[in-house]
């Protein structure tokens, strides 16, 4: 016997066809695909921090966070690092070719909730991609926020992404953009060291700051402890979690992290809500 149920819909496991309207080379191993739905001219809406499942024909599917466009822009941009079979296949695609897409999925950065606060954005490596739409949203209402700080760390200078935009962020919007690399040669005139060393160099009011962090889990652990050292409250720190993901809709069970499903409860979590499990080995 069955109770009352909602009417049937298309399976959330079936991708929709999207057309690649632009391929952008971001760095030696990273590229962006801007895609639009094939069957309708409308751009889909998404919240900063959400991700899509991208399907390369005959190869497979991967979760990729949405990295743009700016508010009012067309399509959805996905910034992808070519590290595996599927991302490699996506890298080979050209303008006007087709990909499968499911989404947008997942939680978003707390933009509205952070009005009136200073914002510290910390990104490690490709972690800047899901934070870029957050920056766009913050800068779209620049006067609603206090200091905006971007602390960005990568392995080597050639891994830096979106650097062309940094000048606009600095100059037009007064964002404190600070970058650092793990190692560099003489050509590099910037900072060398891990990203959390930048925290003490940034100007913000810790008690009145919302921090948004995305990067490798180990980097985030140290970033959180650095922010806590400066007395940013735990419930004002937001982190992103990553786990194996197959379905993105809470069916497959792969992405569980303690009681959370990364796909539908995350990927963005308020730190104090997951800290019980954060850093536990093999959780």
């Amino acid at each position: 016997m069955a109770g009352k149920m909602e009417p049937l819909m298309q399976s959330p496991m079936t991708p929709w066809p999207y057309r690649i309207q632009k391929v952008i080379r971001e760095s030696h191993d990273t590229f962006s695909l801007n895609v639009v739905p094939k069957n309708s001219p409308d751009s889909m809406t998404f919240n900063p921090g959400q991700f899509n499942m991208l399907y390369a024909f005959g190869v497979g599917e991967v979760p990729i966070s949405i990295s743009g466009p700016q508010p009012g822009g067309k399509g959805m941009i996905h910034t992808i690092r070519d590290v595996g079979i599927v991302t490699g296949a996506l890298h080979k695609l050209k303008k006007d070719q087709t990909i499968g897409l499911r989404g947008p999925f997942g939680s978003a950065w707390p933009i509205e909730e952070s009005k009136g606060y200073d914002i510290v954005i910390m990104a490690g490596g490709i972690g800047l991609a899901p934070l870029r739409p957050a920056l766009y949203a913050l800068l779209d209402q620049r006067d609603k926020f206090g200091e905006i700080v971007l602390l960005y760390g990568v392995r080597k200078p050639e891994d830096l992404l979106f650097t062309k935009e940094f000048e606009t962020w600095r100059g037009k919007y007064g964002v404190q953009v600070k970058m650092t690399v793990d190692t560099a040669d003489r050509e590099w005139r910037g900072n060398v060291g891990v990203v959390n060393t930048l925290v003490q160099r940034a100007n913000f009011d810790p008690m009145n700051t919302v921090a948004m962090i995305c990067g490798p889990e180990v980097m985030m652990r140290f970033a959180v402890s650095e922010l806590k050292r400066r007395e940013v409250p735990e419930d004002q720190i937001f982190i992103t979690m990553e786990r194996n993901m197959k379905c993105a809709v809470g069916f497959c069970g792969h992405c569980q992290f303690g009681p959370a499903f990364i796909c539908k409860d995350g990927p963005i979590f308020r730190y104090d809500k997951v800290k019980q499990f954060f850093g536990i080995r093999e959780i």
């Binding site: 490596g125 392995r155 793990d182 060291g193 891990v194 990067g215 490798p216 180990v218 980097m219 140290f222």
Partner: peptide, 19 residues
Amino acid sequence: GQTMEATRLQLLDIYGNND
């Protein structure tokens, strides 16, 4: 101490391909 912590993180090469 902070420098040592930072150095250890650099050693981990956390942004590497297999991070």
